[in-house]
């Protein structure tokens, strides 16, 4: 029997969304367009049109030794070209952001190769070869997992995920990398990931409505759905805890405890 990944338990919307985003056979819904040049500008690692900086020659010029792993694993485009490692990092508001840091890690692990992810409470960083990072960033920023108001693209000074929202429902950013354009109703990036000004505002579109966010989110909340409302999720959490506890070196046996 072929193993079929279940991805995540549960019947609630956050559970379904977690499954959906993790399942690489599901194509993330594209809800906005941002040009390749603007993605490069927001990331701030290079200027649009500038060559990629490399840390080694292209692999095909390197005369690599015979190696079954090298034969087995197709290098990513960035690895083939010898790009340096760069990153993109997102901050996700606790207020029904479409996705949150753990789900990013899980989703990226299923969807992308040649990357390394870091999960913290407010933000999530993914590192990869530079052109691979740009491709990941473009797919994510244009997708349903990114909301203009509740997701931030932030390389530094990332705080804000747990703060209340501003009067327009926008997540706090101490560097004010983005502004809400009242006339268009859109959020515009005016600085790159590390807070350096960019030549012209880059729109990431209008914020989703609260109802739409609640439908798309992976976050369980008391004013939405909690894991208590999704019995299978709670059961999974408790199972994980006890498997870890009694899988130790020489613990008490459960029956005797």
């Amino acid at each position: 029997m072929t193993y079929k990944a279940q991805f995540f338990p549960g019947k609630s919307d956050p559970s379904k969304n977690r499954r959906k985003y993790m399942d690489p056979s599901y194509k993330l819904q594209k809800i906005r367009s941002v040009s390749d040049e603007d993605i490069v500008r927001v990331l701030g690692h290079r200027e649009p049109g500038e060559d990629y900086k490399s840390v080694h020659p292209p692999l095909e010029e390197m005369g690599e030794p015979e190696c079954p792993i090298r034969e087995l694993v197709e290098p990513t485009p960035g690895a083939k070209a010898g790009d340096r490692i760069r990153y993109v990092q997102f901050t996700d508001s606790v207020y029904f952001a479409p996705i949150s840091p753990y789900q990013r890690s899980w989703m990226y692990s299923y969807r992308y190769r040649g990357m390394d992810s870091g999960t913290l409470s407010g933000r999530h960083v993914v590192e990869a070869r530079e052109r691979d990072v740009e491709a990941i960033a473009k797919e994510i920023i244009e997708s349903e997992t990114f909301d203009a108001a509740r997701t931030g693209i932030r390389g530094r000074t990332v705080h804000g995920h747990a703060l209340r929202l501003d009067e327009n429902g926008i997540m706090f950013d101490a560097m004010q990398r983005y502004v809400f354009n009242k006339s268009t109703g859109e959020v515009q990036y005016v600085k790159n990931m590390v807070g350096e000004p960019i030549p012209a505002p880059i729109s990431v579109g209008k914020p989703l409505s609260e109802d739409e966010l609640k439908k798309r989110t992976t976050i369980f909340r008391a004013d939405g759905v909690t894991i208590r409302d999704d019995a299978e999720v709670l059961q999974m959490v408790q199972n994980v805890h006890w498997e870890r506890s009694f899988g130790g070196f020489e613990p008490y046996k459960e029956a005797k405890f």
């Binding site: 949150s100 070196f249 020489e250 613990p251 405890f257």
Partner: peptide, 30 residues
């Protein structure tokens, strides 16, 4: 674990490492 699963987020790396492995030695005295 409850916190991590509810919020889809947890603490800094220290939590994400040590609190994922810590349960394994909770009941060990040796």
């Amino acid at each position: 674990n409850v916190h991590k699963e509810q919020m889809g987020r947890f603490g800094f790396y220290g939590y994400d490492l040590q609190d994922q492995i810590g349960a394994a030695n909770t009941f060990s005295y040796r």
